[in-house]
Amino acid sequence: MVTNDVVNVGLLSSLKPTVNFANKMTAEAGQVWGPRTISDCQLIFVESGKATLSIGDSIFSIGAGECVFYGANTPHKLVSSNRNPFTFMSIHFDWNRESSEPIHPIHGIQECQLSERFTIYKIRIDDHREINFPHYFINPNIEGLFSHIVREYRYEEPGYTFILRGLVVQLLTLIIRNELNGDLSLGEKRKIAPSLELIRKQPEKNWTIHELADICGYHPTYFTSIFKESMGCTPKQFLINERIRKAKHLLLEAKTVEEVSIKLGYTSIHYFCRNFKLITGLTPTEYKLQSLEL
Rank of each mutant, 00 (worst) to 15 (best):
102 P>L: 08
70 Y>L: 01
166 G>M: 14
81 S>C: 06
98 E>N: 11
62 I>Q: 03
95 W>I: 10
149 I>T: 14
93 F>H: 12
93 F>L: 02
68 V>S: 09
143 E>I: 03
154 R>W: 13
124 R>E: 13
98 E>S: 05
137 F>V: 06
116 E>Q: 11
92 H>M: 00
120 I>V: 12
68 V>G: 09
109 I>N: 10
101 E>T: 08
161 T>S: 10
138 I>E: 14
124 R>Q: 08
144 G>P: 15
108 G>A: 02
62 I>C: 01
150 V>G: 03
87 T>A: 09
166 G>K: 07
100 S>Y: 14
140 P>A: 13
145 L>W: 14
67 C>W: 09
158 P>C: 01
86 F>P: 03
134 P>E: 13
112 C>L: 09
92 H>A: 05
86 F>V: 10
112 C>W: 06
85 P>E: 08
66 E>H: 07
126 D>S: 15
98 E>Q: 13
137 F>I: 12
106 I>A: 15
96 N>E: 07
146 F>L: 05
149 I>C: 13
78 L>K: 01
163 I>F: 09
87 T>N: 00
82 N>W: 00
123 I>Y: 08
93 F>P: 07
78 L>R: 01
132 N>P: 12
75 P>D: 07
165 R>K: 13
65 G>E: 08
102 P>Y: 10
163 I>A: 12
70 Y>D: 05
161 T>K: 15
151 R>M: 14
155 Y>L: 02
63 G>E: 14
68 V>L: 12
71 G>F: 01
113 Q>S: 14
65 G>W: 01
139 N>R: 11
147 S>V: 13
74 T>K: 01
66 E>S: 00
167 L>D: 04
120 I>G: 05
96 N>A: 09
133 F>S: 00
116 E>T: 04
159 G>W: 05
69 F>K: 04
151 R>L: 15
90 S>D: 04
106 I>F: 15
156 E>Y: 03
80 S>R: 04
110 Q>H: 12
84 N>C: 01
155 Y>C: 05
62 I>S: 00
107 H>P: 02
128 H>V: 11
97 R>V: 11
116 E>F: 06
66 E>C: 04
118 F>C: 02
140 P>D: 10
151 R>W: 15
167 L>G: 04
129 R>I: 15
122 K>W: 08
160 Y>G: 04
79 V>W: 03
107 H>I: 01
114 L>A: 00
167 L>E: 03
84 N>L: 00
75 P>T: 02
104 H>Q: 09
113 Q>A: 10
165 R>H: 12
126 D>A: 13
131 I>S: 08
128 H>P: 01
139 N>W: 05
121 Y>A: 01
144 G>D: 15
122 K>A: 02
72 A>I: 06
163 I>E: 07
107 H>N: 08
60 F>E: 09
131 I>F: 07
148 H>K: 06
159 G>M: 09
84 N>D: 01
147 S>M: 12
71 G>K: 05
90 S>F: 07
66 E>A: 01
135 H>F: 12
93 F>V: 08
85 P>L: 00
76 H>L: 05
75 P>W: 03
64 A>M: 02
134 P>S: 12
101 E>S: 10
93 F>T: 12
142 I>A: 00
